[in-house]
Design a protein around this nucleic acid. Structure first.
Length: 312
DNA sequence: AACACGTGGAG
DNA sequence: TCTCCAAGTGT
């Protein structure tokens, strides 16, 4: 309810005033579909998979269609890998789609189609790591656990520690940092959602909008004059020409073709470096994202095979 | 611990 | 154009 902090008390540097944060969140919160009241824990799991390393704007059009098509773990598990990979589309990191599919199968088979609610069990599931396990426990089941993603790490680094950027991820330290800030159990989920939201739309990595920040009067970094990062910037690897790009091109061909394709069809997708193309294809086969048929053609795993042979 | 793993929008 | 980076996970 009311602010219990005396009005004449000076703001405490390095603190996060929960009233300031909540007041801001009340009007600033984005109306994201996976935050609606009738969204199930599984559907929240799907959103978390899609949001791993992927901007909200790219997930926005995909999630609703996915949920409408496969609303439960068992429905998802019943789909073919090919259908799942196609529905994933260009979200990136297709291994996530495969793991989501596997995760659905485990939950359907071993957990009676019900998403587990505790962090330790969640972390054992395919594709669910430290962040996603806590996000699901918190946002789907309202468990008061620290939820630490890149946004939270950045907000804490600045507001609490006065650092422009978070240091290297350390699960132990990161969780302790946030656990120390967590309000009572009934407010923990809202607190984490607000902290993530703040990092996503105000306390951004590139150009933070400190004038619009509800924490500007207590943010230690801001109070210290927003000192630049002292961390040495490691050389960034270019994407163009990497195996990742080649894998993406090969998968593009397979996604776009409703029937299995020939080796020649794949070969034209990347001609600049044959060795690299071979390596990329081998890794896709290894990852189970591509399947080689008995006749030497290739397709997404589990794809319907009665195609070109039937037309002969 | 460091690195691989997609994609595309923003500045 | 080119760099940065977006709700991480697995090895």
């Amino acid at each position: 309810m009311g602010d219990i902090v005396p009005a004449n008390r000076a703001p405490r540097p390095g603190g996060i005033e929960i009233n300031d944060l909540f007041n801001w969140f009340t009007f600033a919160e984005r109306d994201l579909p996976w935050r609606a009241g009738d969204v199930t824990p599984w559907q929240i799991v799907v959103s978390e998979f899609m949001l791993q390393q992927t901007p909200v704007t790219r997930v926005l059009p995909v999630w609703p269609e996915w949920i409408a098509r496969w609303p439960t773990p068992s429905a998802t598990a019943a789909a073919s890998q090919a259908d799942v990979l196609r529905a994933w589309g260009k979200l990136g990191y297709p291994r996530r789609a495969k793991r989501l599919h596997e995760c659905a199968a485990v939950i359907a088979r071993e957990f009676a189609d019900t998403v587990p609610d505790d962090v330790d069990t969640l972390e054992q599931l395919p594709g669910i790591g430290s962040y996603t396990a806590r996000a699901v426990a918190c946002f789907a089941y309202r468990k008061p656990v620290p939820v630490v993603d890149t946004n939270v790490r950045r907000v804490v680094a600045r507001a609490v520690h006065g650092q422009a950027e978070p240091g290297n991820p350390s699960a132990k330290r990161d969780h302790a940092d946030v656990a120390a800030l967590l309000p009572g159990p009934d407010q923990a989920a809202r607190f984490s959602a607000a902290l993530m939201e703040l990092g996503a739309i105000v306390c951004t990595a590139r150009a933070p909008r400190c004038e619009a920040c509800p924490l500007q009067h207590t943010c230690r970094w801001r109070l210290d004059g927003s000192p630049p990062s002292t961390a040495p910037k490691r050389p960034t690897q270019r994407y163009a020409g990497t195996d990742r790009q080649v894998r993406g091109r090969l998968l593009d061909v397979l996604r776009d073709n409703p029937v299995a394709v020939t080796r020649a069809d794949l070969d034209v997708a990347w001609t600049v470096d044959v060795i690299q193309r071979e390596r990329a294809l081998a890794s896709l086969l290894q990852d189970g994202l591509v399947e080689e048929l008995a006749d030497g053609r290739y397709s997404l795993p589990g794809q319907d095979r009665n195609d070109s042979t039937a037309s002969r």
